[in-house]
């Protein structure tokens, strides 16, 4: 145990996800020996992120104003809506440059083991958006794991009676992988989703 400010910093850093006591101690001593200007910049960035960043009123992506950059963009299609779990998924899809529609960020996935049900996500807000009648296609881009698939199944169940086309991102073999190492579920899906060449 250290005394005073350094121990306070170690304790605070240790509360961050993925940072254990040893890592917290290492980061704290790095900050202690760093240039004061660098530390001030870090402190300012931390303060600003809490002061300025909020969730977009429409899609619930992170934003610095009432609406995020994507929701404000008039060139994007209102007819295609892509549902993702977290804001980081929006960034991943934007990097592809393939999608020109709008997003809806759920804020997680249904996970009964962690006590997360449909009411804990922004599914109600999604249904309100879809009820406006503009969206023609809903793309479910939740993670391809058990929780993500269950969330997609649940949303599809709710949305299909509304007459909106519901699609799911394709899943299959990763580029650069060996076929023999593919697990049964992935390989099975790759077969289901095969296409003519």
């Amino acid at each position: 145990m250290y005394e005073g400010a350094i121990q306070d910093l170690i304790d605070e850093l240790g509360r961050l996800p993925g940072v254990g006591p040893k890592s917290a101690q290492r980061i704290a001593f790095h900050i202690l020996s760093a240039d004061p200007a660098d530390v001030t910049r870090l402190a300012t960035a931390l303060r600003k992120v809490k002061e300025l960043v909020r969730f977009c009123a429409i899609c619930h992506n992170v934003a610095e104003s009432e609406q995020c950059r994507i929701c404000r963009d008039p060139r994007r299609s209102d007819e295609v809506l892509c549902v993702v779990e977290e804001p980081k998924d929006v960034v991943a899809i934007e990097r592809t440059g393939e999608f020109r529609g709008r997003y809806h960020v759920l804020g997680g996935a249904i996970n009964p083991l962690e006590g997360v049900g449909p009411d804990n996500l922004r599914i109600r807000e999604l249904m309100i958006r879809l009820g406006e009648g503009t969206v023609k296609e809903l793309i479910l881009a939740t993670d391809p794991n058990t929780e993500g698939e269950a969330t997609a199944t649940y949303i599809a169940l709710m949305v299909k009676p509304m007459g909106i086309s519901v699609t799911r991102l394709a899943s299959g073999l990763p580029v650069g992988g060996d076929l023999e190492y593919a697990d049964e579920i992935t390989l099975g899906r790759a077969f289901e989703g095969r296409r003519a060449v």
Binding site: A150, L157, I185
Partner: peptide, 11 residues
């Protein structure tokens, strides 16, 4: 899991 994923009550 592959039998539960398309059936929310089973999941």
């Amino acid at each position: 899991a592959k039998r539960f994923l398309d059936d929310y009550p089973r999941y």
